[in-house]
Write a protein that binds this DNA or RNA. Structure first.
Lengths: 201, 201
DNA sequence: GTCTATAGCCTGATAGAC
DNA sequence: GTCTATCAGGCTATAGAC
């Protein structure tokens, strides 16, 4: 018997569950989240939720793998044939926008990585490493060609990740410091200035 | 009856417990850590550990408050009367060193803040905010005096925090990408270049 | 597909002997 | 001060009716 195609209800429930799971996992971490919290956030009973996903671990894993691709797509889109400065600035701004628009995703990964990335270590040292090796080579070629100033390409990427994701991951701290001011008001200007001054040859 | 002064054994055990708790909390977060893990890491039985601290929560709280002061001391030391560029670069390098030498402390705070800082929210919006308001005013005065280039002082601090602490908090990711290379080999040069180019008038 | 009820495990904390 | 034994509550996951 062939595997049945998911019905509309199944698809809708599965999506609602993953959205609720993202809410809870990103706010509490894997261990801090409970299946009950996810179930009520999704508007389902706990056993019903476990009808769609065999375990709490399965939900978490599905989220991580489903989101990993989207998370890395801005870097994947860095175009070796584009204008170097424009490509890097575009990457920076797209990452900052993702921090603003998808803070839950950022915190999901932050939770996982701060605690040693037990569930995505393979993806980091394979997929991520390969992608980064590829793109740092591009950046290095731009440096060699004199299109941008000389910096360590890996640390350049680390700095972009840390700075942009900081606005999502450390959101409460930033808001505690800024008070009423919206963090994302001054951020685009700041990162723009920073990377232009760093990279202008 | 006056409170008895702690004996040497008490002091030694208390210190061993806090060190073990820092190990476990920083690696697993509050919810992920178990009292059993902390106890065996400290070489004590679980009830004995709970003889020194009334609860798991108490250990966590003791760590956070004890470490908060040390964590903020580099910023507190920013000297309004020193040479502006030298003061800021000194702050950057000291923060980077702390990331290298005290990664557990960095991850303890990262865990707490990513999950909404439920236990240190007051400290963030009081102590931290006051300190930051104070120091950003100093930085702004340096900008007005033309000693450093014009940047948003708050976002400048955010960038320093995020970039330096990234090397501790996202250590596994960085090592997965870099392979054998030591992250802290290229980091000091990179951050030095970055902030000099950003801040040179 | 969805529920109520519950099994079975883990964990924080306590009792009480030494 | 330190231990063994254990309680009580919360948690993941399953059983089984509908």
């Amino acid at each position: 018997m062939p595997a049945a195609r998911p019905t509309r209800i199944q698809q809708k429930n599965r999506a609602a569950i993953l959205d609720a799971a993202l809410d809870v996992f990103s706010a509490q971490g894997f261990r801090g989240a409970t299946v009950d919290q996810i179930a009520s956030a999704a508007g389902l009973s706990k056993p019903n939720l476990l009808y769609y996903f065999p375990s709490k671990e399965a939900m978490h894993g599905a989220l991580l793998t489903e989101l990993m691709d989207n998370w890395l797509s801005p870097l994947r889109d860095l175009n070796p044939d584009g204008d170097p400065m424009q490509e890097i600035m575009g990457y920076v701004h797209r990452k900052l926008q993702m921090s603003r628009d998808f803070p839950r995703e950022s915190r999901l990964f932050a939770n996982e990585i701060v605690q040693g990335a037990p569930r995505i270590h393979a993806a980091l040292s394979m997929d991520l490493k390969n992608l980064v090796d590829d793109k740092t080579a591009v950046i290095q070629s731009w440096i060699t060609a004199g299109k941008i100033a000389s910096v360590h390409p890996y640390h350049l990427l680390f700095s972009i990740w840390s700075l942009t994701q900081h606005y999502a991951d450390f959101d409460v701290q930033i808001r505690a410091v800024l008070g009423d001011e919206d963090p994302f008001e001054g951020a685009p200007d700041f990162v723009d200035t920073l990377y232009r001054r760093l990279l202008t040859p």
